[in-house]
Design a protein around this nucleic acid. Structure first.
Lengths: 221, 221
DNA sequence: CTGACTTTGTGCGCGCGTTCACAAGCGCGT
DNA sequence: ACGCGCTTGTGAACGCGCGCACAAAGTCAG
């Protein structure tokens, strides 16, 4: 028996690879669980948690089984234990550094986004190319100039781009150059990154256009 | 031959139902096409447009074939024609009303989001529950009190919720009560709406948590 | 201790979406 | 007029994800 098989048997049924669709829902469950914990709830059934998260209960159970955290049949899931399981899986237990570039309206909104994620993920540094903003205090942090990028990036940092579209690629290249391998892009542009960099995007206008499509469809029905 | 069959034959091969995945990509194509049009480009191949949109070229062709807009083989797609085709399909030709509720940092960012969508979708009204904000000018619009909701909503309006989570459900109910059937929610909460209301959500923190997961995975590889 | 009830974990079938690979079609040069 | 090369449009196969429905497993009352 090899060491990897030993490790496997120590954490039974823990999947080595978690489906992307499941990962995308874990934060939803986490938020609902935090709300339950604040209310003093001890245990929760898959049905109730699914309701609070807005998903199907079978899907929820399958998701949770993926990460090996067991509930107890006939009872449900232990809220506190489940929170720590999901947090650990998402890498939220060990606080990771988040660097935000671009302190416009959107950047300020992100900086002040109440603890950003539920307890565990918070922005550590604010950067902007405009020297007029350098030194300004926002949400308890001091804005630094983009030239200081290398000083605030540590291995494992996540970069967030909230600049105008015209500056996004340049900022992206700077982040990659500084060693950032996970980037969240809010600028409405397609960014080019090396294959080993994880790039996700949030586009504020695309969702609105999708709604426009459905509204349009309704009107001509 | 019925009238519907006549209409069918007039617009050949136009699909009556467009896959959701395709709809979600149309805004991407539209943005890339606008950029091309601004550069004076007349025609574009599926390969080039796919590159600019960050998708697979086969997928792009299948998407465009869904809405029946033909390119010409050996040449490519006419940029201007394709823009009008996609715009029409998304319902962007007939300007539709967008009502934004919640004028915090995020609301301001959305209000000022440079024409919001590429030419066609813009916010028409700003509302907030805080009377201290009533009358304030933001991005050329005057903030009105939430009580005026019924006066700014017209049939086909899209509602955007950018309030704190605690107020989101209440605002949502108000929108639904005023006749809004398409809602975009930026508040980190699960909202309950009637079945005939289209609800989409954008969660600024979930994407970050997903990145955190991948970063975490890299570190223990 | 036993039996009934509750809730988890999952096998299975289905449908959607993605991608490859190629046939059909169009323009252009000769 | 004609063939050559380029690009579109799509048939088919594959894989993923969803949700039903049920068996396994644990709790609690008596």
């Amino acid at each position: 028996m090899t060491t990897s098989e030993l490790a496997e048997s120590r954490t039974p049924r823990r999947r080595e690879v978690i489906p992307e669709a499941t990962v995308a829902r874990l934060p939803l469950y986490l938020r609902a669980l935090h709300a339950l914990a604040d209310d003093g709830t001890q245990t929760v059934s898959s049905e109730a948690l699914a309701e609070a998260s807005g998903v199907n209960s079978a899907k929820l159970r399958k998701d949770l089984s993926q990460l090996g955290s067991y509930g107890t049949r006939g009872v449900g899931y232990d809220v506190t234990h489940l929170i720590s399981q999901i947090s650990r899986e998402l890498g939220l237990s060990r606080r990771c550094s988040v660097v935000l570039v671009g302190v416009g309206n959107l950047g300020r909104a992100l900086a002040g986004y109440g603890g950003f994620a539920n307890r565990g993920l918070a922005i550590d540094a604010l950067l902007d190319a405009d020297r007029a903003l350098t030194g300004e205090q926002i949400a308890g942090m001091t804005v630094r100039h983009i030239d200081d990028l290398a000083q605030v990036v540590v291995p494992g940092s996540i970069g967030v781009i909230a600049t105008p579209a015209s500056a996004a690629q340049e900022v992206c290249d700077l982040l990659v150059g500084a060693g950032v391998t996970s980037i969240l892009n809010f600028a409405p542009t397609v960014l080019n990154v090396p294959a080993d960099v994880d790039l996700r995007k949030v586009d504020l206008s695309i969702e609105l256009q999708i709604l426009s499509f459905h509204e349009h469809r309704k009107s001509l029905a």
